[in-house]
Design a binder for these strands. Structure first.
Lengths: 196, 196
DNA sequence: CGTATATCTATCCACTGTCAAGATACAAGT
DNA sequence: ACTTGTATCTTGACAGTGGATAGATATACG
């Protein structure tokens, strides 16, 4: 989706690091986290099976880097939604929630990697930082909106619940809706969760 | 946890089917879904690596059966909570939600298998039936409580969100609470999700 | 006593991760 | 321009692991 690079030079791929991350995400989407293999990723990236070792220690290393990248895009998706929304605290929170769900629907494989699998190494500083940033962001929005501990948990839970269930193919009711109706539903549920 | 059977007769284990399910769950808990292997389960059950094939076609077959069993216990946990609660519709729904979370915390590995992994084969009639039953139950409770589509989604989402995030080790805020406080929190969140 | 069923042993094959050794590109320094 | 060095990538081989299958063997049951 993003390599109009120098088309083909056999050696020195140019940016194999990024290419591997892309291939890994695609691989995750098609075969699932459990069937993930370094060699397969290498194959997909059109590179020999030993090449990834130069950029990532092993499979978990790749997945950890990918998860960190995921959290950054995750936050970015939310921030974009917020920019397009009204500036009052409630609207901002709702927008963020909608972004949360949108991210999950757009990149289900990444989402599952980040939240549903034990594979990424969360003691890795880069990943830890990215994940913490996402958490901090949410906390702040809820707080600005007048919420406390319970409201933080509530907001996170509804939104995460919707996202996870939809990715898992449940929640047919919501899945059949148009994007707009779905966003409205998320907004409503999130709003209710914040009312004392 | 439940085989005071004839202690040891080398051949004809007696109820290898059940024993394999137990071993599989333990294995899931210790090594995670991604590292799951039939041979390892057989080892743990004290049986040769080819034995499981007679009871389950393959690894996914075992996991599918285990997931189905999981959904039955899942429903049962909720029903037990409901029995101990007041009979009005709202109390019943809250109790069910508390049961949902309790199940996830008690058997995190099973929970993840059921909701967070693509491995069980949901086209298998037995599993499908068990999963549908759980869904039907929830739907019914919400409906009896005066809710419609949106409230069904909301109830399921909050509760599932809490469960999934706690299993994943997030939601520190809630995790540090006592069981009672946690149940109270779940109840509050669930109640809010149902108020129009 | 004979037959079906459950289990074991023994192989076979595919796949993975890792390592070592060689090839290629690129960047400096001389 | 030539050498030297280093990071990148390739090829090939190895050991471990897992799933599948076939045939032998023990047990249960009629």
């Amino acid at each position: 989706m993003a390599q109009p690079d120098p088309p083909k030079s056999p050696y020195h791929h140019g940016d194999l690091y990024a290419a591997l991350l892309i291939a890994a995400e695609a691989e995750l989407g098609e075969r699932g986290v459990e069937a993930f293999s370094l060699r397969q990723v290498a194959r997909r990236a059109g590179v020999s099976h030993a090449a990834p070792a130069h950029h990532f220690r092993d499979a978990n290393g790749l997945l950890t880097a990918l998860a960190a990248e995921g959290f950054r895009r995750f936050l970015e998706t939310q921030r974009q939604k917020e920019l397009a929304a009204k500036p009052d605290p409630e609207s901002q929170l709702m927008a963020s929630g909608v972004g949360y769900v949108e991210f999950a629907m757009t990149r289900p494989a990444l989402f599952r990697l980040m939240f549903g699998s034990g594979r990424p190494d969360y003691s890795h500083p880069d990943l830890r930082a990215a994940a913490d940033a996402a958490y901090q962001h949410l906390t702040q929005l809820v707080t600005l909106n007048g919420g406390a501990e319970l409201e933080i948990a509530a907001a996170w839970s509804v939104v995460h619940g919707v996202a996870d269930l939809m990715v898992a193919g449940r929640l047919r009711g919501l899945k059949n809706l148009s994007t707009e109706d779905r966003d409205r539903a998320v907004t409503t549920m999130l709003a209710r969760s914040q009312r004392a």
